[in-house]
Nucleic acid binder design. Structure first.
Lengths: 253, 253
DNA sequence: CCACCTCCGTGTATGTCGTACACAGTTCAG
DNA sequence: CTGAACTGTGTACGACATACACGGAGGTGG
């Protein structure tokens, strides 16, 4: 399941940036926000968002369901914290050798792998980077890598969004295919059976018939690297034009 | 909420391709599969997948919850049917003037708009096109538009996936931003308040500070057209190489 | 013509979910 | 050392998907 609305911004921001100062009175808390988030991430990694219930998180930590609400206002805010926690794994590009293209390749590949480690991230709302410390650090790093190569600030944002749009889109397709495979077990045959029911209508679709024959559909997973190079080629065409001194007309208005 | 597993392929395929032959005995059904799907689509369009319950569908049609199960095995299969129904709006590219690029531009823009009319489609699993008649027709149309321009069959699939990856990724970002805006009402100020809490940490992030000053972040929605042209530029670089007779090395393996 | 079989729509029940609320025990400031 | 602040807990509610059993409708075989 996906919530496509995030948690209350105020409270989430407070959780993400606020000092974890513990109040002076009352018993010392047995858990921490980080521990709760970690447990939740483990559940989501293993069995997906569908298995991520407040009950499950509490059970994994050995407490009752409602105890979790002492650390988190609600499930939506917990999801926000989970995302920012996981974004600590995002790449830092400052130390990558090479120009903008090499850095963006690293960025894209690392995000691709992050999404495969934590598929549930792609099942949440796709806003601009969550305003948590880790997400912001990674965003800053990418924008910096695109700075100083002749692009306007707006173009930098647009270039990053183009690449990130592709990476997330491709990753989501790949991740969902893998999850479906796992979910249905070894459903290779069941899947083929379904296709049989479908192939019998195929004569109406000549191009797909041809491709079925040539085996183009047998590649289950789309080739991420292929698309990545195409997208970077397209961006490079713009960037090399800019670095020759051409002004942006209304490219990224 | 999103189910990331689709319905049982057998039963979905039967629903999508099977003749709607009504059995000879028993009372005549008051509804049809199409009517159920239509009602469900209206609910999802208006209020999102979170509002799409079997109860809501039944209520909108003036029947009890369980009556819906006479037309659909379960919610997952209903979602499959909804997706294929909505894909009837997908573009047919045969009549589009111009070469592959003009056709793919039309394809991309029409899908972009379809996703904005039916945002919930992007909140479901992103498999390869659902194997329903409408989805397949649209897929066939796109693959045909990429045929006969020097690409191998595998490259055609890879090129389409690259473009479609970008379109879906960009659309998902845009759609989620719009939904969040609607969900939080006129939360412009609440959103800014959240940012205030955040800006005070900004000195650690020089690039983002600069961009805040230059107004690059004030553009709420990413520029779809900008990214589309970059991606098509990148694909064109490959295609024009191929049309000059160069063989694929291991571009799309 | 009629009995029956099939399929329709319905009502009830189960187990899951997020979370509101009241409570009892713990810790420290006054 | 009293009481405020905070902890973890138990109970309860409404919403959800859906399994199951039922009563009635309506063609079909005798």
């Amino acid at each position: 399941m996906t919530e496509y609305s995030s948690g209350d911004p105020h409270r989430t921001l407070e959780l993400l940036w606020g000092e974890p100062a513990r109040p002076s009175r009352g018993p010392r808390p047995a858990l921490t926000l980080a521990a709760v988030a970690r447990a939740a991430i483990e559940i989501a990694d293993a069995d997906g968002l569908g298995a991520l219930s407040m009950r499950a998180v509490a059970e994994r930590l050995g407490f009752t369901t409602m105890s979790i609400y002492r650390y988190v206002p609600g499930k939506a805010e917990l999801l926000d914290v989970m995302v920012d926690t996981v974004n600590a794994e995002s790449p830092v590009l400052e130390h990558v050798e090479g120009g903008w293209r090499a850095k963006m390749e690293v960025c894209a590949r690392e995000e691709w792998e992050l999404f495969h480690r934590h598929p549930w991230v792609l099942h949440l709302a796709w806003h601009r980077p969550v305003l948590g410390p880790n997400s912001v650090t990674s965003y800053e790093s990418a924008l910096t890598a695109l700075s100083g190569i002749g692009l306007s600030d707006m173009e930098i944002v647009a270039v990053f969004n183009t690449l990130y749009g592709y990476v997330r889109g491709a990753a989501r397709t790949s991740v969902d295919a893998k999850l479906a495979e796992r979910h249905t077990g070894l459903s290779e045959d069941e899947w083929w059976a379904g296709r049989e029911r479908f192939w019998q209508h195929l004569e109406r679709f000549p191009t797909m018939s041809r491709m079925r024959g040539s085996g183009a559909f047998d590649v289950v997973e789309m080739d991420f690297e292929f698309g990545l190079e195409r997208v970077l080629d397209g961006l490079e065409a713009l960037i090399s034009k800019r670095s020759l001194g051409a002004e942006p007309e209304n490219g990224a208005r």
